[in-house]
């Protein structure tokens, strides 16, 4: 059954619905207890090592692709960077996630046969690796590197006429 809403000029306001409270039989706070949150935290903690491994592997792949300077690497680099930006923060690498997002932004809307600037890619890949290694020791360095990568990518996009 579809509940399609027709779009009209007259605003319609539907009152607050407590349907979910009725469904669970009370307030969510009475079911989601501090003990349950601790259990959820423990589950989350179990995922940390595999997440960190995943980030490291993908970052190494980006670095390798940048170093080898092969043809048609756009899609592969974008995919690795996209995966890194998705999990980096939860793996404990917040700034690395931001750098991975910048790599995606550089490659967004570019065709599959687009040749990324090799110097830029290598520099950003090195910055990403450095940020990951120093994330827990000095986040200020990471933040500065994110800003530098942001500037470098903005300049490159402008020089390629892709702003």
């Amino acid at each position: 059954m579809a509940y399609a809403l027709s779009i009209s000029e007259t605003p319609e306001i539907f009152p607050r619905s407590f349907m979910l409270q009725q469904k669970i039989g009370g307030k969510a706070t009475s079911f989601i207890t501090p003990e349950l949150i601790l259990l959820a935290e423990a589950i989350l903690e179990q995922f940390m090592p595999p997440l960190q491994d995943q980030v490291k592997t993908r970052l190494k792949s980006i670095s390798k692709l940048a170093r080898e300077r092969k043809e048609n690497i756009r899609d592969e680099v974008w995919y690795h960077a996209h995966e890194v930006r998705g999990v980096a923060a939860n793996a404990g690498f917040v700034n690395l996630g931001r750098i991975a997002d910048l790599i995606c932004k550089y490659l967004d809307n570019a065709p599959s046969d687009f040749k990324p600037d090799a110097n830029l890619l290598t520099t950003v890949a090195v910055a990403a690796l450095f940020t990951m290694q120093n994330e827990n020791r000095d986040s200020a360095i990471g933040e500065e590197l994110v800003r530098d990568c942001e500037i470098a990518i903005a300049i490159q996009l402008a020089s390629e006429g892709r702003v």
């Binding site: 306001i13 539907f14 009152p15 409270q21 959820a40 935290e41």
Partner: peptide
Amino acid sequence: SARTLMDRIIAVIDRPRPFIK
């Protein structure tokens, strides 16, 4: 974090807002 995820679930269940179209 588990807490922020739980907080958002609590918010949609316990503090629904009117729906606007």
